[in-house]
Computed example of a mutant assay.
Amino acid sequence: MEPTIGIESDNLTSVSHALNSILADEFILYTKTRGAHWNVEGLNFHSMHLYFESQYQALQDMIDEIAERIRVLGHYAVATLRQYIELTHLTEETVQPNSAEGFIKSLLNDHDTIIIHLRENINYFNDKLHDAGTADFITGLMEKHEKMAWMLRAHLK
Rank of each mutant, 00 (worst) to 15 (best):
L19W: 11
Q83C: 00
V40I: 14
Y56N: 04
E26G: 00
L29M: 09
Q60W: 07
D25P: 05
L19K: 02
R82H: 04
H49G: 02
I5L: 15
L43E: 13
V40A: 06
Q83L: 10
I85L: 13
S47R: 13
E53L: 07
A36W: 15
I70L: 07
I66Y: 01
G74E: 07
I28T: 06
L29G: 04
Y56I: 07
R71V: 15
E86Y: 11
E41C: 04
E68S: 02
R82P: 00
L19I: 10
R34D: 09
P3I: 15
I85A: 07
R69G: 02
E68H: 04
L81T: 09
H75F: 14
R82L: 04
K32G: 05
T80I: 10
L73Y: 05
D10R: 01
S16L: 14
M48A: 12
Y51N: 07
Q55K: 14
M62E: 11
T33C: 13
S14Y: 12
I85Y: 10
L19P: 02
V40Q: 07
M48D: 13
V72M: 05
L12A: 01
I85V: 13
H37D: 06
T88G: 03
I63N: 03
T4A: 12
S47M: 13
S54C: 05
V40T: 12
L12T: 01
I7C: 03
E26C: 05
H49R: 05
L23W: 08
E8P: 02
L12R: 01
V72E: 04
E8L: 02
V72H: 01
Y76S: 07
K32A: 06
V40C: 08
A18E: 10
A24Y: 14
G35S: 09
A67E: 09
L50I: 09
L73A: 01
A79N: 08
H75T: 01
K32R: 12
V78P: 00
S54F: 09
L29Y: 12
T13E: 07
L29K: 11
T88K: 08
S14G: 03
V72T: 05
Y51A: 11
A58G: 10
V15E: 03
G74M: 07
S21M: 13
D61V: 04
T33W: 15
F45D: 06
R82I: 05
D64R: 03
E8R: 02
Y30G: 06
I7S: 01
R69Y: 10
H75I: 04
A36I: 15
N20I: 14
I7D: 01
I22V: 09
R71P: 01
Y76D: 06
A77W: 05
R69Q: 12
S54D: 13
Q57E: 13
I85Q: 03
L43I: 11
Y51Q: 09
W38L: 08
R69N: 08
V78G: 00
I22L: 09
L59H: 08
G35N: 14
R82Q: 03
L19G: 04
D64N: 07
R71S: 03
S47Q: 14
L59K: 08
F45Y: 15
E8Y: 03
T80K: 02
M48S: 10
F52T: 07
H37G: 05
F52L: 06
N39A: 11
I22A: 03
E41L: 11
A18W: 06
I22M: 08
L43Y: 12
N39C: 11
T33V: 15
I28P: 02
